[in-house]
Nucleic acid binder design. Structure first.
Lengths: 152, 152
DNA sequence: ATTCTTGCAAAACCTTTGCATACTG
DNA sequence: CAGTATGCAAAGGTTTTGCAAGAAT
């Protein structure tokens, strides 16, 4: 079963309707999920395709998808919300380049020990986490190096 | 040397001026730093004290303080930016309660091994990180438990 | 004196909401 | 048909900006 089908089934199971706009937005979201598209960006893509779907519907659909747990709303500090698939146990972290604002994903989760420790020591029942690293990607490190070479 | 003095020295060293509004905002920020006050909240406190300082100045001062590395801008997902002192090596993480929105701080940093691993495997030069845990604080766990008891 | 800073108001920006219309189950 | 969902426009909230007046070095 595809991710789209899964979204449709969950929506229908919860009394929501499977509409054209929702189908189209979800398709586009999945096609661009690795770019962490924002609502505004999805809307732009729709407009470029001469779609009639309004910005409000994009926002409402993304909110709904987050509500049913199909996606996670992320904040990379660039002024808008971005999204990722809530892919079950697919744990990963984000590397945010402070040079070019690109976001890389790290495929590892070494936080379980830390989580258990926190749950014990702070009596806090953890349900999720979000770990962001800031720094320079390989390309921007290269560029920074070249700039400092030129300056000499 | 107090934190305020340090901020003043860095500002002056970089050609910025040490003004009344900045002094007042920094004092208030430090007094309320553990509450992670937002710009709007600082402005409210100022108004309650009959200060003439405008909201724009609060925003500009906070932005400036973040720029010189005196504070870090944080996002807890409640629609506004909040701040913490960029306290050198004072590493900690945030526990955000999804019940009451309170933010607790965890005084531990077990990410160094993970950071080194990421720097090696992804050629990413890490300069900072932000780790947020979501879940229920002790009080909200208690409340959730009582609610489910009542339901029986 | 020069440069930076301030307050105010207006604008920008992302996001949400009201409402009449259109669609889904 | 009943209940949702949609598009549009308007409103909401946070943050930024233009500008003339004021303050710091």
């Amino acid at each position: 079963m595809s991710a789209t089908d899964k979204a449709r089934d969950v929506l229908l199971a919860q009394g929501y309707k499977w509409t054209g706009p929702r189908r189209e937005i979800i398709k586009l979201l999945l096609d661009n999920i690795e770019r962490h598209v924002s609502a505004e960006e999805l809307y732009s893509i729709l407009q470029a395709k001469n779609s009639e779907i309004g910005l409000a519907t994009v926002y409402r659909t993304l909110e709904l998808l987050a509500e049913i747990g199909f996606i996670h709303k992320l904040n990379f500090g660039d002024g808008c919300s971005r999204y990722e698939l809530a892919d079950g146990d697919h744990h990963h972290h984000h590397l945010i380049c402070t040079g070019c604002a690109k976001v890389l994903e790290v495929e590892m989760d070494l936080l379980e020990t830390l989580e258990q420790q926190i749950e014990r020591e702070y009596s806090f029942a953890i349900s999720g986490h979000h770990l962001k690293f800031f720094g320079l990607c390989q390309g921007c490190q290269q560029e920074a190096k070249e700039d400092s070479d030129e300056a000499q």
